[in-house]
Amino acid sequence: MSESHPLDNPVVASLTGPHAPFAEWRGQAVRYPEDVTPFHGLPDRPQAADWADLAALAGPGAVVLLAVDAAVVPPADWAAVFRVDGVQLAGEDVLGKTDPEVVGLGPADVPEMLALVERTRPGPFRTRTIEMGSYLGVRRDGVLIAMAGERMHPPGHTEISAVCTDPGYRGEGLASRLILAVAAGIRERGEIPFLHAAGDNTNAIRLYGALGFRFRRAITFTGVRVPGPAG
């Protein structure tokens, strides 16, 4: 049997690897703290006991976010909240490029980052998401107008995420520049950048392909509700 690749189960690979300090475990179920990111992880082929552990970890009525193979189906009494059929793209040949307009972002920038996320909806971003890795941004007249950063961190790889640009500044290539700037930092560590996108987000997939990222596999992002009333 071939050994699984770190990107096959990126949440578990991250939380058993570089992001282990974030990990909250119950049996074989694991999650990040809620104020970091809503992602939870399970074994590649979860059994009934694993779903029971996840239920105990998250609590009755909680909605858990999973990044799993499409073949993973929750038990019948877990209600589906949403499902996004996505793609995973790896950048083995992406070297990255630094950019003089790009600046580092830190804890003091989180309120502005959250406001930009609210305007652009790139995906989950919480008050402590910035602790997952390096985040970079572009400012105009002192205002944060675009950003991107690092999220999941399986061994030897780092995900580029939270790529977003204020609607008033789109069309200037800021997303491409930020992705390459983040990728440059990942490459400096000797790691490979990768990305996720919704399968129907053809514009993003086209952009990532133009930057050198290549399709690796399909992946499903699903939100499911733990049985029982919320506490």
Rank of each mutant, 00 (worst) to 15 (best):
M1C: 12
S2N: 13
E3I: 15
N9R: 08
A13E: 06
S14G: 11
H19D: 12
P21N: 08
E24C: 13
W25P: 10
Q28Y: 10
R31Q: 11
Y32C: 08
P33F: 09
E34V: 15
D35T: 13
G41S: 07
P43H: 02
A48R: 14
D50C: 10
D53F: 03
A58F: 05
G61R: 05
V64L: 06
V64G: 00
V73T: 15
P74Q: 05
P75K: 09
A76C: 11
D77K: 00
A80H: 13
F82L: 10
V87Q: 02
Q88F: 11
Q88N: 02
E92W: 14
D93I: 12
V94S: 04
L95D: 15
L95T: 15
G96T: 02
G96N: 01
P100K: 11
E101T: 14
E101R: 15
V102D: 04
G104E: 14
G104F: 10
P107L: 14
A115W: 08
P124K: 03
R128Y: 06
E131N: 12
E131V: 14
M132D: 01
G137A: 11
R139H: 12
I145Y: 03
A148T: 01
G149N: 01
E150T: 13
R151D: 05
P155M: 01
T158Y: 03
E159C: 00
S161G: 04
A162K: 04
V163L: 03
C164H: 00
T165N: 06
Y169S: 08
G171M: 04
G171T: 09
G171A: 03
E172G: 11
L174S: 04
S176C: 13
S176F: 03
A184Q: 07
G185A: 03
R187A: 02
R189I: 07
G190C: 06
I192D: 03
I192Y: 02
F194G: 01
L195A: 06
A197D: 07
D200M: 10
D200P: 03
A204N: 10
I205M: 12
R206W: 06
A210L: 11
L211S: 06
L211C: 08
R214H: 09
R216D: 11
R217D: 09
A218T: 15
I219C: 07
F221C: 00
F221Q: 09
T222Y: 05
G223K: 06
R225I: 04
G231Q: 14
